[in-house]
Design a protein around this nucleic acid. Structure first.
Lengths: 160, 160
DNA sequence: CGGTATCCTGAAAGATACTG
DNA sequence: CAGTATCTTTCAGGATACCG
């Protein structure tokens, strides 16, 4: 069978689209930002974001189901145990996504004062940046130099 | 008190929120994915995504306005000139964002066949990856080792 | 405090028809 | 081909009330 022409590929099975199906819902990325910042409890997140309870509840459930967050029981003295929401291994791997979002915003949308938060390498104290490189350790300056090719799961686009 | 619609919330002080205000709208990232893939014309994008014309039109206008895309006139023989949509400098800088999205999806949501597209370093042929490092060139393995601190534009959270 | 159930509402996606 | 205008409809977020 002939190879699929690159522009006729069906993108519905694309990883960007799939990830987007989870992360693209309203509030999700903002919720994750708060969890990365160290907020783990329902009401803390709710108050910081100004999100309504039902939506926050729904989103947290969804993220637990997707394996991005996990419940972790805790109890404050005198109260029954409750659940905190923490990032799973998979969730922690979303950090670059947030960094990418933040980096672009810092560069193109920041106010005159600069960013509200900075990420530093602990100990070293230098700013953290995202870098594109290949596995042979060549640094890439941007999209030029990158070639997109059909992968194993490429499918042809259905004709109309 | 006037309620704040979720898209009008005060994200003005956070780069993630600001970027999200643009990129978080439905279809936007998928549209950009197509443009990065080399699709530049209205109908091509429309057919590949299955998006409705009014929405595509609105999104393209928005992205032009935000400085992410620019119109570039072209003409096919015998027809009047039309516009293609191309990434601006700022738009090209969104590439890491798409890579981050794709990388996470490849790792956590891919089917058994693997990814539908692969990005390679041109010439070298090795896969392209996104790496977190600090400006002193220390490679970071993830969020551990990253310290988030208040930046110049930090503001206190308004009391309720 | 940490949610769930219900209802209401509005924004925005899609279908369709039309235009240059 | 590249859109715009209009209309309909759906869906999801917010308010509110309530429960363990």
């Amino acid at each position: 069978m002939g190879s699929v022409h690159w522009q006729d590929q069906d993108t519905s099975n694309c990883s960007i689209g799939r990830t987007w199906d989870i992360m693209g819902k309203p509030w999700v990325l903002l919720i994750l930002r708060e969890v990365f910042r160290g907020l783990h409890r329902f009401d803390d997140i709710r108050r910081h974001l100004g999100i309504s309870e039902p939506v926050l509840s729904r989103r947290l459930h969804g993220l637990v189901e997707e394996g991005v967050l996990e419940r972790r029981p805790y109890r404050t003295p005198g109260n029954r145990t409750r659940d905190e929401y923490h990032l799973t291994e998979a969730g922690l791997e979303l950090f670059p996504l947030l960094v990418a979002l933040k980096a672009w915003g810092d560069r193109h949308l920041a106010g005159p004062e600069g960013p509200a938060t900075v990420h530093e390498h602990q100990g070293c104290g230098r700013p953290v940046v995202l870098e594109l490189r290949c596995t042979a350790d060549h640094r890439l300056e941007g999209v030029e130099g990158v070639e997109a090719r059909s992968g194993p799961a490429a499918r042809a686009l259905a004709r109309e």
